[in-house]
Each structure stands twice: as C-alpha cells, then as structure tokens.
C-alpha cells in the first residue's frame, strides 16, 4: 500500500458516499445517470468476485464490501425507491456500446485466459468508460448540481491517484500492469474537460454550466 493508492481509495469511497448521501437526503436522483451506476455495479461485481476466494487484507475485503453495498444501494434508490425522480429523458447513452466492446476487448487482450482474469479485465475496461453516460447527461442537461460535480471530481481524482500509485509501484516494486494503466489513463483523460470546468467554475462558487 502507498499513499497514492490510499488517497485514491479514500477519494473513491468519498465519491460513492457523496452520491449515495445526495440521493438519500434529497430523496431524488435528478441529474444522476442511472446507466453509469448500473455500469459501476457491473464493474464491482465482476472485479470483486475474488472476495470469496482470495483474502488479501482486512482493508481490501472491507473496502470491496463497502463499494459493492454502496453501489447496489445507489442502484436500488435510483431504480426502485426514488424511481419517479429518475430522469429518463436525459439519461439516454446506449450502454451496450460500452459493454459489448469491453467484453470483446477483455477476450482479446488479457493476461490469462481464465474466467476470473477475463472478468477482472472486463471490469477494468468497463470502468474506464463507465462515467460516459453521466458526462453525456451533464452535457445534455447543460449543467450539474454542485454536489454532483463534487462527486464527479472525487471519482475522477481517484483513478488519477491510481496512476501515481502505478508509477510508484513500477519504481519501488518493479512491476506494473499495462492493462490497468492504459485503461486508467483513458479513464482519467475522460474527466479532463470536466476537471477544467470544475476548477474554473465550481471552485469559484459558480454553478457547473457547460457552454451551450
């Protein structure tokens, strides 16, 4: 474990908690993409299967349970409890265009053609694009509540910190995983224009308004 990965995990946890709390407190999921949340649920489910089989550390197991539980809770709140507030009209990204290529790529490019490894690889590829429906929705609505932008910022920073973690691990432990790194770079790059807007607008107290 290193400080970059720890801060990354904390940022990731913070993002998930911010979102869950926002939906629960406002009893509404307006402005949130349910499709992205479904994709994140799929990412954690396919990646954390080893929760049952392999034990790495208490921290690792606890965080996996928390991520899975929070992800499913968010999906439940969005599609069941506060279903009436779900914004179907703006959450229109075709997620099959993300899932199918991720499956194909996981079958083509992986470290080992085993079920668990393929599922892990699929989850890595899918996670790198899972935020697209949310970013697409923000661009369609033209704005995002500040709490939603804090969620997106924390979520974007988490994988950016993981990039630093991988640099550190390459330097300190002399190993690296190119699949995770390439997908992590793609994932972080997707947030760049949002980071720009967040830093130039939201941090100055303005609402996140995308140029129409």
């Amino acid at each position: 474990m290193n400080i970059f990965r720890l801060l990354g995990d904390i940022s990731h946890l913070l993002a998930i908690i911010i979102l869950l709390r926002k939906i629960w407190m406002s009893r509404s999921c307006a402005g949130i993409s349910g499709k992205s949340q479904l994709l994140f649920g799929l990412v954690y489910t396919t990646r954390y299967l080893d929760l049952i089989t392999s034990y790495i550390s208490l921290y690792n197991s606890v965080m996996k349970v928390v991520f899975l539980a929070a992800s499913y809770a968010t999906i439940y709140l969005m599609y069941v409890k506060f279903k009436a507030t779900y914004d179907h009209n703006h959450d229109t990204f075709r997620i099959e265009f993300l899932v199918v290529p991720a499956v194909a790529l996981a079958l083509l490019i992986n470290h080992d053609f085993q079920v668990v490894e393929i599922l892990w690889t699929f989850s890595i590829y899918l996670e790198s694009v899972a935020i697209l429906p949310q970013l697409f929705m923000v661009s369609k609505t033209g704005e995002a509540e500040s709490i939603t932008s804090h969620y997106l910022f924390a979520l974007g920073v988490y994988r950016g910190l993981y990039l630093l973690n991988w640099i550190y691990r390459f330097w300190a432990e002399d190993h690296y995983d190119l699949i995770a790194i390439v997908a992590g770079v793609v994932q972080t790059v997707l947030y760049c224009d949002f980071f720009y807007l967040y830093i130039t607008k939201v941090l100055r107290g303005k609402k996140l308004q995308l140029p129409a």
């Binding site: 991520f67 470290h111 993981y162 691990r169 699949i179």
Partner: peptide, 10 residues
C-alpha cells in the same frame, strides 16, 4: 509477458 500482479488493488 507483463506479470499481472496479484490483484491486491481495488
């Protein structure tokens, strides 16, 4: 082949 280090990351 790049060693896919043991999945100790979240």
């Amino acid at each position: 082949i790049l060693n896919s280090f043991q999945k100790d990351e979240l």
